[in-house]
């Protein structure tokens, strides 16, 4: 029964860490600033690899009926159709090819005509696994909705945090949010990952996760603020992060495991989605909560309300039995 009586078996992080996270802000803030600027520069220089959801056009996923698709031949066939730029890309097995044709001038009907032309040219040599045509009107709308959606999400979360915590927390979380989004978009620009509706889903999920993490730490900070009236803020923040460290690590390991399983076994249809999530959730989200969202509170003057009641004696460190 000894086994049953002990919780931990595997510990990646020792208990009672006393790591000084706050000192790291002298490194993490400039680092994040540089990374953010780099991401913005990338966004403007390389741009995003917008999928047809946002720029319109035609996308086909075809499978060659022979052993391997003859890309050169297909390129020649499709290039001669006068449809402008035609992108072909091996996709998964050597038989699978992804064909992308940019939006045709001439409104909604021209897009349909382009699809018909392509299918006529390729004929029976391939099977069509997927086809999508997005007209100019829809693509413009989708882009606008997505942008509005991201803003709404950030705003909604801001308002919620403002009600639940102090305004400093809401502001800190929002800065952290924007930081996460900027870096993830930079990552997508750097690797030219398809930016489509699924990417918006990925971005919003990253937002949610990163906040989840931030909120757990903030929650602890709030608790300690109430308990220790005189502890200097940097020390208090440090203790908050250190005491939630094991939880952060365990949670991120499990989420990473789930994401890795999807990355390796989920097929190439969701590769870019999971890759973005891995970057956003695992790398950026965690780092942000610890090194950006928490230290920011120092600058926003969190805990200033405590000074009014400073005559209160700090509670003893060892936990006196509280109301259970």
């Amino acid at each position: 029964m000894r086994f049953h009586r002990s919780i931990p078996l595997l510990r990646l992080i020792p208990d009672d860490t006393k790591f000084d996270f706050m000192r790291f802000r002298r490194i993490s803030f400039p680092l994040s600033a540089i990374a953010s600027i780099a991401a913005i520069v990338l966004f403007f220089s390389h741009g995003l690899n917008f999928g047809i959801d946002f720029v319109g056009g035609t996308l086909l996923e075809v499978q060659s009926k022979s052993e391997a698709a003859d890309l050169a031949k297909m390129r020649a066939t499709l290039g001669g159709l006068g449809l402008g730029e035609v992108q072909l890309q091996q996709f998964g097995t050597p038989r699978d090819v992804l064909i992308r044709v940019s939006q045709q001038p001439g409104g909604e009907k021209a897009q349909q005509a382009a699809l018909a032309k392509i299918k006529e040219a390729l004929g029976d040599e391939v099977t069509y696994r997927q086809e999508a045509v997005v007209g100019p009107r829809i693509s413009t709308e989708l882009l606008a909705y997505s942008a509005i959606g991201l803003m709404t999400a950030i705003f909604g979360i801001l308002v919620y945090l403002w009600f639940r915590f102090e305004w400093q927390f809401a502001l800190g979380a929002m800065v952290a949010n924007v930081h996460d989004l900027v870096l993830t978009i930079g990552f997508m620009s750097l690797f030219q990952i398809d930016f489509d509706l699924a990417s918006i889903a990925a971005l919003l999920t990253i937002l949610g996760y990163s906040l989840n993490d931030t909120v757990v730490i903030y929650d602890r900070i709030r608790e300690l603020l109430r308990r220790y009236k005189r502890m200097p803020i940097p020390e208090l923040l440090n203790q908050s992060i250190n005491s939630t460290m094991t939880r952060s690590v365990n949670t991120h390991v499990t989420v990473t495991l789930a994401l890795l399983a999807m990355y390796f076994f989920g097929g190439h249809a969701i590769h870019s989605f999971t890759a973005t999530m891995l970057f956003g959730v695992v790398l950026v989200g965690t780092y942000t909560s610890v090194f950006i969202a928490a230290p920011l509170l120092i600058y926003f003057g969190v805990g200033s309300f405590r000074s009014a009641t400073a005559e209160d004696e700090p509670e003893p460190q060892s936990a006196a039995p509280r109301k259970a």
Binding site: G149, A153, G156, I157, Y160, L204, T205, L207, Y209
Partner: peptide, 10 residues
């Protein structure tokens, strides 16, 4: 709840 807000918007 914060994560849920993101899901709702989506």
């Amino acid at each position: 709840i914060t994560t849920f807000i993101a899901a709702a918007v989506l």
